[in-house]
Every structure is written in structure tokens, then in C-alpha cells.
């Protein structure tokens, strides 16, 4: 009978549909969880966020036009879910007083500039030594300290490796906005690492004092 046949076909496609969906989700689970961890900052909430994302993704799977875009598509659901959960949970509405346009002082901050000592001999590399001393925990803390708007782009770019174009699609903002948020986020991140390193005593002397030392040394020799 015709109706029965149709039903069978439908069941078969749905089963196919479900198993390919499952395969893709399981393949991306570590990445989704990694991003979720840096967004919500704790294991339990991160697990909930991933579960909510997977459920929403299944419900709206028909909205994915091109199967090639599965990864950015499901990350879009993850970030949207995160943002709307934050709004729901916030006691007071989001009062992040950040303008989109980064001030020069913030984007211009460079850890490298702080650490680099151009007068040192070629084999000495304080900026690399600094990075080698950093622990995973230090980097996590610095990412976690970023305001949400900038944390999302840093996570999507530096942790998950999305292109500017993909991030623009995920966040539904122009590519220029992605660029400026990323520049600002990275500036703030480097500033946080610098602050942390000073507190933790990873930096013994400031560049300024060592420069003075070298200048003095040079003068002495003259």
C-alpha cells in the first residue's frame, strides 16, 4: 500500500538523518565543550550549554542549508544560546559599558613591547622565556577575565580557529566588527597576562629599568 511505503521511507530517512547528525555532533563534542568552558567558565554549566545546543540544533536542523557549514552553524547556536542564557540569568540587564570602537590605548597594548629588550644579545629572548613560563591556567584566567563581547571572538578565533568571515556569520555582524572586537579582545588579553605575570612574579624587572641599566652601561664604556 502506498501510505505504508511512504511511512517506511520517511522512517528510513529520519534514521539516516539522525545517525549522520549524531556522528557530526560527537565529532565536534570536544570543541563545543572547550568553547563552552571558556564562555561559562565552569564544567557543569558548560555541559548544560552543550546539551542545550545539541537539542536546539536537532530541532532546527532544517535551517542548515549547506551541510558543509555544520560546524559554524552549530557554533552559532552555541554562542546564541550562551548570550540568551546570560540575559535570562543577569540580575540586572547587561551593563557592559564597552563601545564597539576600541580606544587606541587598549588595542595598542602589546605584551611583546613590554617584554622585548632590543639591546640584549641575540641568544637572549625574554619574551619567549615569558611565554614558556606561562601555564595553561594563566591563559585560561586571562581569557576568562575578558568581557563577554570580546571573549566570544577570542574563543572563536584563537581557540576554535574560525575565519573572520565565519565569525561574521556566527555572530551576524560585519567582518569589520569582528576585526575590531578581536583586536580589542587580544589587547585586553595581553594586558591581563601582563598584570597576572607581574603579580605572580614571573617578571623580575621592568623593561624600563633594564633599559636604564643598558644605557648606563653604554655610557660607562664611553
Amino acid at each position: 500500500m502506498m501510505p505504508l511505503q511512504l511511512n517506511q521511507e520517511e522512517t528510513v530517512t529520519q534514521a539516516d538523518d539522525r545517525s549522520s547528525f549524531e556522528e557530526k555532533v560527537i565529532g565536534l563534542l570536544d570543541q563545543l565543550f572547550g568553547a563552552a568552558m571558556r564562555l561559562v567558565k565552569n564544567r557543569e554549566d558548560a555541559e548544560d550549554l552543550v546539551a542545550e545546543t545539541v537539542t536546539k540544533a536537532w530541532t532546527s536542523r532544517r535551517s542548515l542549508k549547506d551541510p558543509e557549514n555544520f560546524r559554524p552553524w552549530i557554533f552559532r547556536i552555541l554562542t546564541n544560546t550562551f548570550i540568551s542564557d546570560c540575559r535570562k540569568r543577569a540580575v540586572r540587564p547587561q551593563t557592559e559599558t564597552f563601545t564597539e570602537n576600541p580606544s587606541d590605548a587598549e588595542t595598542a597594548f602589546s605584551l611583546f613591547e613590554e617584554l622585548h629588550q632590543p639591546f640584549l644579545l641575540w641568544w637572549s629572548n625574554p619574551e619567549k622565556e615569558f611565554l614558556n613560563k606561562l601555564l595553561r591556567e594563566d591563559l585560561e584566567k586571562a581569557v576568562d577575565a575578558l568581557p563577554q563581547l570580546f571573549r566570544i571572538v577570542v574563543v572563536l578565533s584563537d581557540l576554535e580557529g574560525f575565519s573572520y568571515h565565519e565569525m561574521a556569520g556566527i555572530l551576524k555582524v560585519p567582518v569589520g566588527t569582528v576585526r575590531s572586537r578581536l583586536a580589542r579582545g587580544r589587547g585586553l588579553l595581553q594586558k591581563a597576562l601582563w598584570r597576572h605575570a607581574k603579580e605572580a612574579g614571573l617578571i623580575k624587572e621592568s623593561k624600563k629599568s633594564s633599559e636604564r641599566f643598558y644605557e648606563k652601561d653604554k655610557n660607562d664604556r664611553l
Binding site: D30, G34, M37, D158, L159, E160
Partner: peptide, 10 residues
């Protein structure tokens, strides 16, 4: 290093 730090095992 950031990328490595962001890697999590489910």
C-alpha cells in the same frame, strides 16, 4: 599556546 589551553576533553 592559547589554542592548546583551550583544548578540553569531554
Amino acid at each position: 599556546q592559547l589554542r592548546e589551553a583551550g583544548r578540553e576533553m569531554v
